[in-house]
Design a protein around this nucleic acid. Structure first.
Length: 455
RNA sequence: GCCCAGGUAGUGUAGCGGCCUAUCAUGUCUGCCUGUCACGCAGACGACUCGGAUUCGAAUUCCGACCUGGGCGCCA
């Protein structure tokens, strides 16, 4: 496509009206308007309208905050007054005026408008109450997510989530990691266990990937040594809980020449660093979520063996817990209450972990796998991996899987595969546990669960 | 997938065989109001998920469908 043609068609799209309100460069962010600002042009959403008769107040909200606009009706021009009468809540407006220092106004300043322009009028009634006088159910919120996110406490969740992901990338990049993105469309299951979503891929059957596990391991064979992938994973499980999603964002890490102890340290240090960064960089967001002092976890986290964990659970639960079982939801909760902070469960029975987990040489019934737990739920799981071809083939067969369907993966183990270890960390669970969100879906803009496919 | 609880104005709720011409809040509209900050006051507007059944009478009971929340299983 030619640049000239592009520019030509763009110009034709600019209508006179757009040009007139196009003075966006004059705009000042709401939080940057201080008592020292003499004149200001702000653009934002109408958060609230309070009309007292001779005096009216508008609260205008943008990405940065809320400012009060005061309209003394007798002192203001008839033009401004007539536009004011047309304003509806949540409309986008542009207001230019004089900034006055005044103690009774929020933030110690207010704007007295010399001109008001409605850039985009909002319809009414609103599908949900942005001001939160009336609460809305999760379902209503997700149906109208764009309005829901206008609420400062909701946008704060996503600003903090952004900070978390940025911190992960920044921290690991500085440690020499290569960030990769691998295919989400795959020809076969990677791990067994979880159900996959089938998709139509021309004349072939394909699936949405449940995990980048096999690809990141293949990148160990490729010699990248340290890789990070942040991307979607898809699980077709029909679960209906506050901690499961059918599409989640996984933070996946794999490290060559490392054992499970080293990657556990990497993980706990990263968790601490994330909390510290959020505490420093997201003070306003935390405040809007009413989190006064974010409790930063302390490394090293306690390490419980699987056997100890089962011991705690069987002592606290009426139904008991047996060695060799997966850790049930109630056991998870019981152990979490006992420990009270982030902790690892290590030394899992080989029988209940995937084929790629490395068994201990002197006790092969136990493997070098771990889960990182928050008292409320599991956040991450990882392991030192099997890097020997024959052993891996053996373990795939042990799990009742067919090595032939893993040939592309297995071949990476035949030409010099370094020992390696890694983990996958659930972004939504990290956000939900950090911020005390009751439902993990609140940590996703557009959650996909058993029943929800839109928006 | 199994179990439990639900579906009432735009939103959040009360009512659970006749007192329902359905409560309250918020919202919207109209009027009054010059320092609100969940502004206030007065008035108005606006709803029983759908389909069948029981009954003299159903928002209310029963059956089915659809939808939702939660617990469990499975999973990370």
């Amino acid at each position: 496509m030619s640049t000239t043609r592009n520019r030509h068609s763009c110009n034709r799209l600019i209508t006179p009206q757009v040009r007139r309100i196009g003075g966006f460069s004059m705009r000042i962010a709401v939080n940057d308007v201080t008592p020292e600002t003499k004149r200001a042009t702000i653009i934002g959403w109408v958060h609230e309208i309070r009309d007292l008769g001779g005096l009216a107040f508008l609260l205008i909200r943008d990405r940065t905050g809320i400012i009060q606009v005061t309209i003394p009706k007798k002192k203001i021009s008839a033009e401004v007054l007539s536009v004011f009468k047309e304003i509806s809540r949540e409309s986008v407006v542009r207001i230019e005026g004089e900034v006055k220092e005044i103690e009774k106004a929020p933030g110690g300043r207010e704007l007295i408008p010399s001109s008001i322009e409605i850039i985009s009028k909002s319809e009414s009634p609103l599908p949900l109450d942005v001001v939160e006088k009336v609460s809305a159910e999760l379902d209503t919120r997700f149906d109208n997510r764009f309005l829901d996110v206008r609420r400062p406490r909701v946008s704060s969740v996503f600003k903090i989530r952004s900070c978390i992901l940025h911190t992960v990338e920044d921290s690991l990049y500085k440690k020499g990691f290569t960030q990769i993105t691998t295919s989400k469309i795959v020809g076969s299951a990677t791990e067994g266990g979880t159900e996959l979503f089938p998709i139509a891929y021309f004349e072939k059957e394909a699936f949405l990937n449940q995990s980048p596990q096999l690809y990141k391991q293949m990148m160990m064979a490729a010699g990248l040594e340290k890789v990070l992938e942040i991307g979607p994973i898809f699980r077709a499980e029909e679960h209906n809980t506050t901690k499961h999603l059918n599409e989640a964002t996984s933070i996946d890490v794999e490290v060559s020449f490392a054992d499970h102890f080293e990657v556990m340290k990497l993980l706990e240090d990263l968790i601490v660093e994330i909390y510290e960064e959020v505490a420093v960089s997201c003070t306003a967001e935390l405040a809007s979520l009413e989190i006064n002092n974010l409790k930063i976890p302390v490394a090293p986290f306690p390490r419980l063996t699987y056997e100890e964990a089962i011991g705690i659970a069987s002592g606290k639960l009426a139904e008991g817990a047996n060695y060799g079982d997966d850790i049930s939801t109630s056991a998870e909760r019981a152990i979490g209450e006992e420990i009270g902070c982030h902790y690892f469960i290590v030394d899992w029975p080989t029988s209940i972990r995937p084929y790629y987990a490395m068994p201990y040489e002197d006790r092969p019934s136990v493997c070098k796998a771990f889960d990182l737990m928050h008292p409320r739920m599991e956040l991450s799981s990882g392991a030192e991996r099997v890097h020997d071809y024959d052993q891996l083939v053996h373990q795939i067969k042990e799990k009742g899987l067919n090595p032939d369907s893993f040939s592309y993966y297995l071949s990476a183990f035949r030409y010099g595969m370094p020992p390696h270890a890694g983990w996958g960390l659930g972004t939504e669970r990290l956000v939900a546990t950090m911020l005390g969100l009751q439902n993990v879906r609140e940590a996703v803009l557009f959650p996909r669960d058993r029943h929800r496919l839109v928006p």
